[in-house]
Simulated scan of single mutants.
Amino acid sequence: STFVAGLEKLKKGEIEPYGVPLAGELPIDFKDIRIVGSYDVDRAKIGKKLSEVVSQYWCDVNSLSDDPVVSTGVHLGSVKNLPIEAEGLEDSMTLKEAIERLVDEWSKLDPDVIVNTCTTEAVKPFGNKEELLKAIENNDKGRVTAPQVYAYAGTLYAKKRGGAAFVNVIPTYIANDPAFVELAKGNNSCGFGDDGATGGTPFTADVLSHLAQRNRYVKDVAQFNIGGNMDFFALTDEGKNKSKEFTKSSIVKDILGYDAPHYIKPTGYLEPLGDKKFIAIHIEYTSFNGATDELMISGRINDSPALGGLLVDLVRLGKIALNRKEYGTVYPVNA
């Protein structure tokens, strides 16, 4: 809802594009972004106009340039223990049938870019496409997760359409799973992911890059986030938290070239914090003549707006990658 509300205000010139990293640097204008479909598994939202859902959170958005009806998605237990009444396609059909339904609906909507913003969930990568196809054929609803269903449906849709992009902004392995990388390459799909980092992780990445450029040796890194929104509530599940931990922790070796001791993961849920999460970072490093320096950073960051600004760019980058036929995982973008 934050992405939709902010995009609408951008189109109308009501706000400046602060928080959109590549605001004026891409050849695609904000006004060129159209929302042709929306999916949810919250029974209270399904069947309503998108504007009706958005206005529940943003009272200053009364109408939308594009206002599709919210369709039924797939959950496969991903919202278990969350305070919603879940409804998914898989409740009344097999995985194969649900995927066929999604591909059929998307073919009518004709999107260039499909964005997955599901709640973070515990996931086991498939590693090869044969295992994925086997699980779907066997209707193994305990093995396949909702994002994996969307991603696979996205590759089938891309093949049918002649090309599409799939953007995954949660830490389920899609862009990092060889099964989906292979499927994307073979079906004219551009893959972006995994995890739209919005809190402490971008700060940590920037600081580590700074230290690497100045030939400091990083001795250890500690970073944690505490928030009070539904995503942080979901992360109280150990399996879901583990998925998030991997995508965050992988930046250390990627940037430094060595795996400095680190503790980087979402740390807890505190409801009063709401969507404005608390972040804290501590980095210890060695400088000239053996001197040891330390950096300590703390802050409060609005989670949903931070991701919303990234989505404005990711949708446009997805279209650019599609135009260039960069099929498979687009590794420079957050993979």
Rank of each mutant, 00 (worst) to 15 (best):
R161W: 05
C59I: 13
G318Q: 08
D275P: 09
L109W: 06
E294G: 15
V181C: 05
V123D: 10
I84V: 11
F233E: 14
V53I: 00
K277C: 10
H262N: 12
V315K: 08
S78P: 05
M296K: 15
D91N: 11
G142F: 06
C118I: 14
T247V: 09
G162T: 07
Q56P: 00
G163S: 12
G127W: 09
G199Q: 12
N229E: 15
K219P: 03
K325A: 13
E14S: 14
K276G: 11
A184M: 01
R43P: 03
E8V: 04
H262P: 05
I174H: 01
E8G: 07
P171E: 06
V36L: 11
F232W: 12
T292M: 06
V221F: 02
S298N: 13
L133Q: 13
L235P: 10
Y327G: 02
S71E: 10
R161T: 04
A280R: 15
R214L: 12
Y39Q: 05
K108W: 08
I297S: 04
I226M: 08
V181Q: 08
K277G: 08
F224W: 15
K185I: 04
F232N: 03
V4P: 05
V333W: 09
D313T: 09
L82E: 01
Y331V: 13
G13V: 02
Y173S: 04
K277I: 15
G318W: 06
F30V: 05
T247M: 04
I99G: 00
N302K: 15
Q148C: 00
S38L: 02
E87Y: 10
N168H: 00
G239Q: 01
A197F: 03
I15F: 08
N128C: 15
I283G: 05
E137R: 14
D206H: 13
L132A: 07
D195K: 12
E130K: 14
Y331H: 12
Y327L: 10
A234Q: 11
E326H: 09
A86C: 11
V218D: 01
L322M: 12
F203N: 05
E131V: 11
S209H: 12
K277A: 07
L7H: 09
T119E: 06
N116H: 14
G6N: 15
A153K: 03
